[in-house]
Simulated scan of single mutants.
Amino acid sequence: MTDSSESKLNIVNDHLDFPRISLTESTDSGYRHIAAAVDDPLLPILPVYLFDSKEKQRLVAECKRLCDELAETDWVVDATVFKAVIHPPGRGEYLNQTDEDVHLADFDVAVLIEVENIPALQQLEENNTYLTLESTLEDAARSFHVISGTNEKRIGPVDHDSDGVFLFNYFFAEDIEQNLQVWEYTSGWFQAETGLDNSTLLLPLDSDRSEYTVINHCRWDGLLDILPALLFKRTFRTYVLENFEANNVAPMPILYKLA
């Protein structure tokens, strides 16, 4: 992956007209995102998670306990555990075209920890409760991913106090700048077609240690707010996915609920 400020957005199907999304000021927070694949989805052709194994039930309960303990720390803003619901449509064609060895996001348990600033991430990584949380997830996972990140772009705050449907979209791109530009360009479609009014885009602090270029996180009230648009709106492919492909960007979305 390269990072070039000279990257230019390649637009296809420019006859389609969706408003550009309005961004709010990014946060100064630091973020730690942990993702683990524990259970398999029901079927490859039906990528939903209907039942949790006993192992996963115990794991999630322990992760919630540890996150509750972390949340009592002064410099921790939020610590939340998520369980996957479904792998929705949206991976696009670039994954089939690239020669890069890309790990397909398959994570059914995710944790997002927000701390008050970037220096506090070092405190987090030295915290015994956090270290127990990370090792507990890694030991239980068949695949595992962890990054520290910053909030590069933001539509609005993501509400973790109310249950709903939460997206973590794991992007792989040849160029970080193109990834950021095409994410912003296509976000207007989600606002217009799904009512999206929140999003926190996470940029890994150390891109060499991350499988993914950026990770987008946002929330809807329920599956009916997002799934029908992904399944039945033709412009999801022609405006969103084809522009991702034209910019060598591969989204890997997973929808979650609060654990």
Results as ranks from 00 to 15, higher is better:
residue 138 E to P: 00
residue 139 D to C: 02
residue 139 D to M: 08
residue 139 D to L: 08
residue 140 A to T: 10
residue 140 A to W: 05
residue 141 A to I: 06
residue 144 F to G: 10
residue 145 H to Q: 10
residue 146 V to H: 04
residue 146 V to L: 03
residue 147 I to Y: 04
residue 147 I to E: 13
residue 149 G to K: 11
residue 149 G to M: 05
residue 150 T to I: 13
residue 150 T to P: 00
residue 150 T to F: 00
residue 151 N to H: 11
residue 152 E to R: 14
residue 153 K to T: 06
residue 154 R to F: 00
residue 155 I to F: 13
residue 155 I to Q: 08
residue 155 I to K: 03
residue 155 I to R: 04
residue 156 G to H: 11
residue 159 D to I: 06
residue 163 D to H: 10
residue 164 G to V: 01
residue 165 V to Y: 09
residue 165 V to H: 04
residue 165 V to F: 07
residue 166 F to E: 03
residue 166 F to S: 02
residue 168 F to E: 06
residue 169 N to G: 05
residue 171 F to M: 11
residue 173 A to R: 02
residue 174 E to T: 07
residue 180 L to R: 04
residue 180 L to Y: 06
residue 181 Q to A: 14
residue 181 Q to H: 10
residue 181 Q to I: 05
residue 181 Q to C: 02
residue 182 V to A: 03
residue 184 E to D: 12
residue 186 T to A: 10
residue 187 S to Y: 01
residue 188 G to Y: 09
residue 189 W to I: 09
residue 189 W to N: 04
residue 191 Q to Y: 10
residue 198 N to V: 07
residue 198 N to D: 12
residue 198 N to G: 03
residue 201 L to V: 15
residue 201 L to G: 02
residue 203 L to I: 01
residue 206 D to L: 10
residue 207 S to F: 02
residue 207 S to W: 00
residue 208 D to L: 13
